[in-house]
Amino acid sequence: MVRLSFIVFSIQLLCSWSSCSKQDRPVENDLKLQKTALSGEWSFTLGERSTLSQSGFPPGDSGYYTDGAVPVLKLGNQYIAFWARYRNYRTVASSPLLQDHLNHLNPLTPVFGGNQPNNGTSNGFNDGGMWFIGVRQLNDGRLAGFFHAETHWYPRNTQGWYAYKSIGVAYSSDSGRSWGAPYQILKHELNKPDTPRWSGLGDGAVIYNHLNNKYYCYYTPATGVTAICMAASADPNGYVGSWKKWYNNAFSEPGLGGKQTAIAPLSMNPGSNPSVHWNTYLNKFVMIWHGWDGKLYISASANAETWETPKLLLEDGPKTWYPAIVGASSVEGGQVIQLYYAYNFRPDGRRTLASRTITFQLL
């Protein structure tokens, strides 16, 4: 039954990557879809839950994934994915689906990130690790890797695992096998406190908006407003100094140290760790995130700035977190996409990685 469901999903997904489903529809159905697309109303159905193997993957961190969305992009005829838990592993497969990437590490060792030992020292930016939250190929062939960064207080055995969070960018000239120096691009208006506590901003996602040629970062502050906020950059490479935070209905505050305002109406269901993609069936951006109540929520936007009222997507146990969407890639999908998420959290932080299909319908 599981194998049959996967075959059906694969056929649906292949059609969503091409124009075959559109060409096979009668003309009157095309007209109906055009009308409903203009109205903007849509619904979704969820497939049955399946789970992915956690045996030995990622090495040394088996059972902890996902720790956020998994960036997946196509390079040539292969798909590259980055799996993060304070350090990042790179996998290569002939499919974008995460189950096809398990145990396909290339190289076998982490390509980016890492943290100080418990008795290490803090550098005030990324000594606690870096998690990729968006990877894009630039016009010059390089990869831009946007990441969540943490700095800790040491020694951890007396200070705990609290973190001050921020967001940065690094660049790769060899398809993500190695990365250059990390740069901080988004920082909270409040500096790292002397007393250990959750602080800063992070747990986000970065996408490139092809409609206006801008990057958008969706993130959550750890203090103050703990709902999803956003920042934007018109620089083609997302360089330091080009980012502006959304504040009082405009991108008016600097990325490093500026203030922010939560996105309305997403603040109705505050949370973090969004996964965002452009949906070619809805002709909208779609965001899925976990609320602080342990449920997954979904919203859509025609321009990546003005978002619709959230809908409840999924409640799978007391804690359903870390959604990751994959369609043609992690930032583009069609009528049928694959949802990955973590549930069944154990006391040591390990969790089960689950998968379901999401099928959209225009109303």
Rank of each mutant, 00 (worst) to 15 (best):
Y164A: 08
V240H: 07
G258N: 08
G327E: 04
Q335R: 15
A37H: 01
A302D: 00
R156C: 11
D67A: 11
I167F: 04
E332P: 00
V169T: 05
R142P: 11
G327W: 06
E308P: 09
E253L: 02
P71L: 04
K295Q: 14
P117E: 03
E332T: 12
N303M: 09
V8N: 14
Y171A: 02
S122A: 11
S199M: 02
Y343S: 15
W289D: 07
I288C: 01
F125P: 03
W307L: 01
N213R: 10
N283V: 07
F6W: 10
A250C: 08
D30I: 09
G129F: 04
N119T: 14
K319S: 10
A234Q: 07
I133S: 03
T66A: 14
S95H: 07
H104I: 05
I263W: 00
R356C: 04
W246Y: 14
P71C: 04
F44R: 11
Y297R: 07
P193E: 00
S95L: 06
S166E: 13
L138Q: 09
P71F: 02
L52P: 14
A232R: 06
Q260F: 10
T226S: 11
G255S: 08
G63Y: 05
D348L: 06
R177S: 04
A69Q: 15
I7A: 11
S301F: 09
L52V: 08
G120I: 11
V111Y: 03
G294R: 07
A149K: 02
S355E: 12
L266D: 02
T306K: 09
N123R: 13
G334A: 04
Y208I: 12
S267K: 09
L97H: 04
I288L: 02
Y208D: 02
F360M: 09
V2I: 12
L108W: 14
F44W: 14
G141I: 13
D100E: 13
W246A: 01
R351C: 11
F147K: 03
D316E: 12
G68M: 00
V2M: 05
S199T: 01
G40E: 04
T66D: 14
L313W: 06
